[in-house]
């Protein structure tokens, strides 16, 4: 009888501690997730964004026997780029030419 009582108490104790452990684990997980999303939001707060939606970007650059330093194409710089329902047509021809910089379509860094 005494042994049975000890066994029941022991089993009950194990179950409770397991549940407590499980609850603690869940709380820690939620806290970490929350901290992560806050950190992500803080990082993204200062990030710039370029949205290209229902747009047409047509780039046609031709260089022959030439040197160019700088931008000759289409450039929209940002940390994050969203492109949706858009057409980007990029045609670049270089013949005996040097181009330092962007000659195409540059969206984002």
């Amino acid at each position: 009888m005494k042994r049975l009582f000890i066994a029941v108490v022991f089993t009950a104790g194990m179950m409770v501690s397991g549940q407590v452990y499980a609850i603690g684990d869940g709380v820690a997980k939620a806290a970490i997730q929350e901290a992560g999303s806050v950190a992500r939001a803080a990082i993204n707060k200062n990030k710039s964004e370029v949205n290209v939606e229902n747009s047409t970007l047509k780039n046609d650059v031709e260089m022959k026997n030439a040197i160019s330093i700088g931008n000759t194409g289409i450039s929209a710089k940002a940390d994050k780029v969203n492109i949706k329902n858009s057409t980007i047509d990029n045609k670049v021809k270089l013949k005996n030419a040097v181009n330092v910089g962007n000659a195409g379509v540059e969206l984002g860094k």
Partner: peptide, 30 residues
Amino acid sequence: GVSVTGCGKGVSLTGKSIKNSVTVNKSRVG
């Protein structure tokens, strides 16, 4: 070309048409 740079928060090209045509021949640019 066409340059949209130095935008702090961001920029929207929604519904825009950008047509760029550049020809450089026997020249030095820069």
